[in-house]
């Protein structure tokens, strides 16, 4: 298993990964509270970016509505917790089930009837918008006035109920990010990963090689939806409040995909690198601006736009493929 996990990564790559992991594990001792919350956002973006990457980067299906899976996961687990006292780790199963069902419906409609490319992207936006409007009127979970989880001062971290301090949330998010990374790595090296890439590269050719493209696209849609829903559960219990206008909004879907685009679509490290670059740099920039006494609302969006522009112009494949070449971390002969 370990050998499988490290397949195709050079010794340098493994060493770099180990250092990165060690730094991330030690971060709560080194970092102050502010830096820790930034790191939580970084890992959250890396995780959701990885989940989206399964669908777009691996299988080539452009979803611009992934906020729907975050939202469904968040509301499902939060509602079960608030209304029935069901712990989030159990609620997680329901969250995944709801998102998977939704991903399967969108996937079925699109892939059975040959909806691809831009039209598929529009379909995903439409579903996310339906969900936003639907939840705006869904009284059971607070409708447009929002849905709130009880917040109190906890004397100790309650991991089972996900109630605790940022350090606990940080480690939960780190574990999720590492798990998603490992899962994607294993998938990419197995038959399903090769088949996804074949579909991404040329669907007609893939079919001529015996690949049931409908089935493999469905796998990607369902897995990506389920993974994203897990982030939704985290989101609900970390922020303790949910508003349809925020969680399901298209800007959330766009934010989610910027990391992997900047880091490198279809690469394993892309979502991770992209999250660090985007969140890290934008936080640094905001700090700098406020230190200089500027109050610039919307600066973050402008900054994201600039990052995107630079990457698209200079490194169309994303930062990671270029960086990997510099660091010599990919191995040729597995």
């Amino acid at each position: 298993m370990t050998s499988r996990l490290l397949d195709g990564i050079s010794h340098r790559g493994v060493a770099l990964l180990a250092v990165l992991l060690a730094v991330l594990l030690a971060a709560p001792w080194i970092a102050n509270d502010y830096l820790l919350t930034v790191l939580i956002i970084v890992l959250y973006s890396a995780y959701t970016g990885q989940a989206w990457n399964v669908m777009m980067g691996f299988a080539g299906q452009l979803s611009l509505g992934h906020a729907i899976y975050v939202g469904l996961g968040a509301y499902a687990a939060a509602a079960l917790y608030v209304h029935f006292g069901i712990a989030p780790w159990l609620g997680l199963a329901a969250a995944i089930a709801v998102a998977v069902a939704c991903g399967a419906i969108i996937g079925f409609l699109a892939f059975r009837f040959g909806v691809g490319g831009v039209y598929f992207a529009i379909l995903t936006i439409a579903f996310a918008e339906f969900a936003r409007i639907g939840f705006d009127h869904f009284q059971w979970v607070g409708a447009s006035s929002g849905f709130f989880l009880p917040v109190a001062n906890y004397t100790r971290n309650d991991l089972w109920n996900l109630r605790g301090d940022p350090t606990m949330f940080y480690y939960v998010m780190l574990a999720l990010t590492v798990a998603a990374f490992a899962l994607c790595h294993v998938l990419l090296k197995s038959r399903i990963g090769y088949y996804w890439q074949a579909i991404r590269e040329d669907e007609v050719a893939a079919r001529s090689l015996g690949i049931d493209t409908f089935r493999y696209k469905m796998y990607a849609a369902v897995l990506s939806a389920g993974m994203t829903a897990v982030a939704g559960v985290f989101f609900a219990f970390y922020y303790n409040n949910l508003f349809p206008e925020q969680v399901f909004h298209i800007s959330r879907s766009i934010e989610l995909i910027l990391g992997p685009i900047i880091g490198g679509i279809g690469t394993l490290f892309g979502p991770l690198i992209g999250a660090f670059l985007l969140t890290g740099l934008s936080e640094a920039m905001q700090e700098l601006l406020s230190a200089l006494g500027f109050d610039a609302p919307g600066a973050k969006q402008v900054f994201y736009g600039l990052c995107l522009l630079v990457v698209v112009m200079a490194l169309p494949g994303g930062v990671w493929p270029w960086l990997a070449g510099k660091l010599r971390v990919t191995r040729r002969d597995p």
Partner: peptide
């Protein structure tokens, strides 16, 4: 089958 107008998976 092969395709007369070839269809490799270009990035792979």
């Amino acid at each position: 089958r092969t395709f007369q107008l070839v269809r490799p998976f270009p990035a792979l």
